[in-house]
Structure formats: C-alpha cells, structure tokens
C-alpha cells in the first residue's frame, strides 16, 4: 500500500518552492554557516512539505516552512557539536549577488559573522525576527515557547549582537 501524497504536491508545491525556497535556504545558511549543509536542509524541508498530509492554515505556509527549517538546523547543530569543537565553527562567508558585491560589503560581513557567532538559541530568534520578519507572537508559536521567553531571548540576542559588533575593529 502506498501512502497518498499530501495536498502540497504538483502546482501547489512548485508555487511554495518558488515563493519560499530562497527564504528556507538562506535562513538555513545563516543558521548552520555551510552552503552545502544549508542546501541539504532546504531539500529535506521541501521533502517534508511534499509528504505532509496535514493542513497548513492559509497564509501560514512560510511560518510552517521556516519552523521545519529551524528544527532541521537545530538537529544538525546538535549532531555537529563534536565537529565544531574539533574543527572550529564554520566560517560564515557572504554570498552576495552581482548587485551587492561591493556596496557596504564590510558592514554586511560584520553583521553576518556576528549573527553566526551568536549561541544557537539567540541566533534563531534574531534570524526569525530580523531576517524573516516574524512577530514575537509568531515566533512563540513557531518555536512552541512563550511570548515572554521570545521577548527575553530577543533582547539578550540583540544585546549580545551589539557586543560582538562593538568588538569588531572598524577598518
């Protein structure tokens, strides 16, 4: 007996992949700091979407995808602990397009490296809030934690981010 594919196949799948694929990929990249791993995570996330048989509330597809992405990144981050300890954390490198190649490159690099240097629990909140533009309530719902905990982690993440950015010597 073959399980039925979920409702997120065919044209629906293609539309969601086109609309949110880059969000998933880039969020994963900022989280894990490795391009190949981010691509693997992106593929896993959309594979899960294809086989998902439940119903995602209309308009919440991006939140669903990013939640699955964060979970996959967390799993990878935990499993790669030994690798990170032995080889050191991945070196975050910018992947700008032609238009953004030079403009404010140093600032962008500083910011990207500072985000990737944050402890994972703060990095994910910073990414969801600043990069993916989710509200505190949405983040709480996605990560299944209270709004108060999101608020505290966001404040602490931001505080740490500012501290890292202040440490970076300006050229």
């Amino acid at each position: 007996m073959q399980p039925e594919a979920g409702p997120y196949t065919g044209a629906v799948f293609d539309a969601l992949y086109t609309q949110y694929g880059n969000d998933v990929l880039r969020t994963a990249y900022y989280y894990v700091g490795e391009k190949q791993r981010a691509e693997d995570i992106c593929q896993d996330v959309f594979t899960k979407l294809f086989t998902y048989t439940g119903e995602i509330a209309p308009g919440k597809e991006k939140a669903w995808l990013i939640r699955v992405t964060i979970n996959a990144c967390r799993d990878y981050w935990r499993s790669s602990w030994a690798k990170r300890v032995i080889l050191g954390p991945p070196t975050m490198e910018l992947i700008p397009d032609d238009r953004n190649l030079i403009e404010e490159r140093e600032e962008k690099e500083m910011l990207a490296k500072a985000v990737s240097a944050l402890p994972a629990q703060f990095r994910e909140i910073i990414l969801l809030y600043y990069y993916e533009n989710f509200t505190l309530q949405e983040i709480a719902s996605m990560l299944n934690i209270s709004e108060g905990t999101v608020a505290s982690r966001l404040a602490r993440g931001r505080y740490k981010l500012e501290a890292i950015l202040e440490e970076v010597p300006e050229k």
């Binding site: 073959q2 399980p3 594919a5 992949y17 694929g21 880059n22 998933v24 990929l25 880039r26 990249y29 900022y30 391009k35 981010a38 691509e39 992106c42 593929q43 896993d44 959309f46 594979t47 294809f50 086989t51 910018l94 992947i95 700008p96 397009d97 032609d98 238009r99 953004n100 403009e103 404010e104 600032e107 962008k108 690099e109 910011l111 990207a112 985000v115 600043y130 990069y131």
Partner: peptide
Amino acid sequence: MLDAGVAGLNCRQDMRAAIIRKQEKVR
C-alpha cells in the same frame, strides 16, 4: 543587509530535482 549578504544564494533547478527524487524515496 542580511538579505544582501546572501542574495547570491538561490534554490537551483538541480536542487528541486533532488527534492523530487528524495520524495520518491521517502514515499
């Protein structure tokens, strides 16, 4: 700024093909 820093990172066609292959495997 964050977006511009990774603007060159995009989902490629071969990634989509790999997803389709994975879907079949998972099924």
